[in-house]
Structure formats: structure tokens, C-alpha cells
Design a protein around this nucleic acid. Structure first.
Lengths: 224, 224
DNA sequence: CTTGACGAAGAACGCATGTTCGGGTATTAT
DNA sequence: ATAATACCCGAACATGCGTTCTTCGTCAAG
């Protein structure tokens, strides 16, 4: 008896949208007009169609005319927005980083993490990405803890300000630091601002193993 | 002239599977039998159906009979792989946490992060999840830095060992700590093992705003 | 050679599903 | 009051699309 002419989404719009979400998650494919009708107590397919047209104009959904179940939520990233990144191994301060072979095209599903594309640096070959699990507390000066997952990108020259994983052969040490090239040396700055930078002479060996793109800490890993 | 009776996946099986993957990613809904046929150079729908039946027996796909486009890959987690988590605001040491209203069913696309379900705690209402962006260096003792994104879960009693966001009214302070209930006090343990715990008497006020589920640090946010 | 399983077509059949149309009833504007 | 909207049926219509039936060629075993 009301809720008319109220601009924005009406109750039916909302119900349809949430049904679309639910159905897609539950079944893996979009519903038909009639299914939407049943779920939202709309008896006529034409009314559903009427609302779908409105939702499309509002940009909430996208429709493929003439094809069955051709309805997608624009908000819902059509799966595929995800990137599977292989976990190449563990990273410890006392050992070099296990950089994966350059030709890993398919990887074991067991050892990979899924990251949404929206969280990854846009552009750039994401095939060069790999991940490492941090072993031990030795990276604490980089604000990285035991069990954290470090996503790295191999290849490419590090720019000033990049966080990189470096292997210092003369110290037998792997470390994560912000990288700065200075006149006669490299400055490796810890992420933790309360800690001091270390300096590496230009003639001292230094191997940049990759650029750190992201750090993930899963605190509650409850299974079940 | 060969490839017959070779158990396992034939070339056609592979082609169909990869087309299913591609189509789902590209269009957001499964293809029809005829579309599969066209894409894999199979002229007859019955042949496609023949292979689909085999793939279903092998457990590679799941079919909803009689339903158009009722084909799903089992490999691909049928329940939307990704979870959109609303970013409720920023978290600072000097102010309480902005916990979102309990009835946010739809949220602005602009302020949300996508997290793969595989990285989130299984089970449990994921509707209670929300995210906060860290403002400033004040959470360094929790190994959390400026700009990090903290994913939290509201509701539920904190268990010993959980990392929680607490608001200490008597100190006007928000902090992230591991939570331990001890005899006459609460012990709030920093994530950084080199730092000391703080103790809160049982009669001192303490508000647990949520349980920290995940911390994400995007280091390279390069756009384009 | 015959038989049967397998791979493949093509066409017909029929339910599934999007589209359209004529006809309603409120609410609001003119 | 009349007209203009916005909402809402229900039903017919026209494809879309899964299913099934018939036929055919090939290969391996009996």
C-alpha cells in the first residue's frame, strides 16, 4: 500500500538482486525469469522482466537478450577475477629463496593461494608471480611474521622504494627490505620505521630475488 | 587414427573442459550444448551430450538435467569463489573502531576488498566480516603497518589465543592484540614476540570489537 | 565374417524459457 | 474529471536448448 514512487531500489528490486546473488552462489548459474518470479512472489514473468529491465538500466545487472539465464550481476566479479599463485616454498632468513622454475604453467592445487585480481598490481605479467610462506620470526624487522604468505614478482629491475627480497651471499642471509640505490651503496630499509637501515657497498654481492607485492597473514585458519 | 580406447581424458574431453572454464569466465554463465559443439568442432549435439555424460561420470562436471546451461565444473568451487568484504572505515589507535551496522546487505562497490573463500575461515557466517584500513604506525606492535587492511569478524566470544581488536575506554585506545583470559585479568599479547604483554584487570573496562581474521598488506599498488 | 562396443552425425521432438501484448488498478499530475 | 504514470497480471508466442532416435563407419574380439 505504499513504497511507491520512492526513487532508488524498491523492495522488489532488492529481493531480485539478493535472489540473483544467492542463486548464483548456490547453483553456479543464473536463474530463469520464472525462477526469479517464484522466489520473489511475482506471478507474472512480464513483471519480472519489467524489473530486470530497470535493474539493467541502473547498471546493477547485465542481460544477454534471447539467451536463457543470461543475467549477471555486475557487482559480482564473474569468477576468473581470481588468480592462482603457486606457493613455491618457504622463506627463511638463513637460506636463499626458492625461486620457481620459469616454466611452471600448471601447479598443484594443494600449494597455491587465490588472490583477487583487484588486489594485485594492475598490468604486468602476473605469470611471474609466486608466493612463499615465511618460516620463523627472522623477518620481523620487515613486519612479516611466522606463517605469513609473501607474494612476490620475479624479474624486472627493482626501483627505488620497492620492497624486495634480497640474498646477501657474504652474510648468508635472505631479507625483506625496501630498496634504495644511493651513490656508492644500496640502502636496505626495514619496513618497521623504528628500525635502522642497513647499507651494502656497491662492490659487495647482492642478489635481488624478487619484488614483494603483497603480504597476507591468516590469523584464524580454523578448519571445519 | 589413434587415441582410441586410451583411458583417461581424450582430446575432446580436454577441449570441452577448457571451453567450459573459458566460457564461464568470459560470460559468467555456462554454455549450451550447441555452443560447446561449435567451440570444439563437434557438429552434433548428441556427441557433445555423449561426452558430457562421460565427464559427469568421471566427476569432472555436474549436470542439471533438463535445465538449460545446467553444467558446472566441479573443480571450480560452485559457491562464488570470492567474497566481497566491505571496508567499514579506518582504524586508528586513538579512536574506537567503526563497526558497521549489522544490516548491511549490499555495500558500495568502491569500498570493498575481494578475498578468496579458500583464504577465509571455513564455516561461520561470513556476513559478519568487515575490513578496516590501518591509519598510521600505531599498530606496529601488532605487526600491522600503515595502509594494511585488517579483516575482522564481529560477534562471538573471543577464545584464548584469538587476535582481537579491543577498545580500552579508560585509556582511550584501540589496539590489536592476542587475547588471553587469565585468573583475575586479561592478558593482551602483542604479535611481535619481542614486545611485552599488557595486562588489564577484570574490573577495568574493555570492549572487544571483533576478531582479526586476516591482515593484508599491498605493497605494490601501482596502477597501470 | 560376424558381432558388439565406441565415436560420430543429423534430424526430430518437446519441454524450458525469453518476449510481447492486451488488459487491469492504483497514484499523481493537469 | 481526465490524463499520464508506474505497477502488475495472465496468456499467447516464438525461440532456446536438452533429449532421443536412427543411421553409419571403424576397430577389436570371437
Amino acid at each position: 500500500m505504499m513504497a511507491r514512487k520512492k526513487k532508488g531500489l524498491s523492495e522488489r528490486h532488492e529481493k531480485i538482486l539478493s535472489f540473483l546473488r544467492a542463486h548464483q552462489k548456490r547453483e553456479g548459474y543464473p536463474p530463469t525469469i520464472r525462477e526469479i518470479g517464484k522466489a520473489t512472489s511475482i506471478s507474472s514473468t512480464s513483471v519480472v522482466n519489467y524489473y530486470l529491465d530497470q535493474l539493467e538500466k541502473m547498471g546493477k545487472i547485465e542481460r544477454q537478450r534471447k539467451i536463457s539465464r543470461g543475467i549477471q550481476l555486475t557487482e559480482l566479479n564473474p569468477l576468473g577475477e581470481m588468480f592462482k599463485i603457486p606457493v613455491a616454498g618457504r622463506i627463511v632468513a638463513s637460506a636463499p629463496i626458492p625461486v620457481p622454475a620459469s616454466d611452471f604453467n600448471y601447479f598443484d592445487a594443494e600449494s597455491s593461494v587465490d588472490i583477487a585480481r583487484t588486489l594485485l598490481p594492475t598490468r604486468g605479467d602476473q605469470d611471474e608471480l609466486f608466493a612463499l610462506e615465511v618460516d620463523g620470526d627472522s623477518m620481523i624487522d620487515a613486519m612479516v611474521n611466522d606463517g605469513d604468505i609473501v607474494v612476490m614478482k620475479s624479474g624486472g629491475e627493482p626501483k627505488n622504494g620497492d620492497m624486495v627480497a634480497v640474498w646477501l651471499p657474504e652474510r648468508d642471509e635472505t631479507t625483506l627490505k625496501y630498496f634504495y640505490k644511493e651513490d656508492n651503496r644500496y640502502r636496505l630499509q626495514p619496513a618497521n620505521p623504528t628500525m635502522e637501515a642497513i647499507y651494502i657497498d656497491k662492490d659487495e654481492a647482492l642478489e635481488i630475488k624478487g619484488k614483494v607485492v603483497m603480504v597476507i597473514r591468516q590469523i584464524d585458519k580454523t578448519i571445519i
